[in-house]
C-alpha cells in the first residue's frame, strides 16, 4: 500500500533521515518505534507532504507521492495525526471535525462520518460545541484522530498518540486504534511507548538517529533481547 524507498531528508544541514525504507500492506498496523529525536516525526511529515525528501521515492497505492503537497496527499487517502494533537484551539469540536473533511464534497458521506466519529468517541459528541482548546489532553487526542478520520483515509499516520496521557486513557486510545483498523483503515503508528505499540501492531520498525536498524513482526521484535533492552525497559 505504502512503499517508502531509500529517502533522505534534511533540515538545512541536518541529515534527519538517512536512506529510510519501509513498507506497509493494506489492513496492517505497522509501528515505528525509536527514541526521542530519532526521526519518527520527520518520516511521517515526509509521507504527508509537510517535508520534501531530497532523494528517494514514496509510493502510495503505486502512485508517486514524494514531494507532493499535503493537499494532494490527503486527497489520495493519507491522513496524518500530528505529534502534540495540534487541534484548532480557537474552534469548536464540531468545526475541527468539519475541517477534517475540508476536501470532501459529499455532504451525506460527511454526515455519516460525523456519526461514526461520534460513535467512536462519545466524549466528542458531548463536547461538540465546546472550544477545542478547553478539552483535556485525552479529548484533544480523540479530536485529532476524529478529525483525521473525517477525510476518510485509507492510511492513517499517528504520531505518538499516547504522549502525555494517563495509563487508563492510553489503553482507551489503543483500543480505539485497533477498532479503527478493524473497519479497514491501515495504520502507521509512531510511538515511544514501545510495549503498547508492539501489543497492537502486526509489524514493527525500529529507527535510530535517522536509520532503520531493525524490522520484523511485532512478536519477533518484542522477543529480541536487543530491542527489549533499548526500548522495553529491558527485562
Amino acid at each position: 500500500m505504502l512503499k517508502v524507498n531509500d529517502i533522505n531528508v534534511y533540515y538545512g544541514n541536518i541529515h534527519a533521515l538517512k536512506g529510510v525504507s519501509l513498507d506497509i500492506r493494506p489492513g496492517e498496523i505497522v509501528t515505528l518505534i525509536g527514541a526521542n529525536g530519532a526521526g519518527k516525526s520527520t518520516l511521517l511529515k515526509t509521507i504527508s507532504g509537510l517535508l520534501k525528501p531530497k532523494t528517494g521515492k514514496i509510493l502510495f497505492e503505486d502512485e508517486h507521492v514524494a514531494g507532493k503537497v499535503p493537499q494532494l496527499i490527503v486527497k489520495r487517502g493519507i491522513s496524518h495525526v500530528p505529534e502534540g494533537r495540534r487541534v484548532f484551539a480557537n474552534m469548536s469540536v464540531e468545526e475541527n471535525l468539519e475541517l477534517g473533511a475540508f476536501l470532501r464534497k459529499d455532504k451525506r458521506g460527511i454526515r455519516e462520518d460525523f456519526e461514526k466519529v461520534y460513535q467512536l468517541f462519545p466524549r466528542l459528541h458531548e463536547r461538540r460545541k465546546q472550544l477545542s482548546g478547553t478539552l483535556s489532553g485525552g479529548e484533544q487526542q480523540m479530536l485529532a484522530m476524529g478529525r483525521a478520520l473525517m477525510a476518510r483515509p485509507r492510511l492513517l499516520l499517528l504520531d505518538e498518540p499516547s504522549m502525555g496521557l494517563a495509563p487508563l486513557l492510553v489503553k482507551t486510545i489503543f483500543r480505539i486504534i485497533e477498532e479503527i483498523n478493524q473497519t479497514g483503515t491501515t495504520i502507521l503508528l509512531v510511538e515511544q511507548n514501545a510495549n503498547m505499540a508492539l501489543s497492537v501492531a502486526n509489524r514493527a520498525y525500529v529507527i535510530e538517529t535517522g536509520k532503520i536498524v531493525a524490522a520484523g513482526t511485532a512478536a519477533e521484535l518484542g522477543e529480541s533481547d536487543q530491542i527489549r533492552k533499548a526500548y522495553l525497559g529491558g527485562h
Binding site: V74, P82, V87, A148
Partner: peptide, 19 residues
C-alpha cells in the same frame, strides 16, 4: 474557516488539505 485554521496553525491546516 480555512483562514482561521491557517492563522492558528499553518501545518495542521495543510494536513486538513487546506491550500
Amino acid at each position: 474557516k480555512a483562514m482561521r485554521a491557517v492563522s492558528h496553525d499553518m501545518d495542521a491546516a495543510k494536513l486538513m488539505g487546506i491550500n
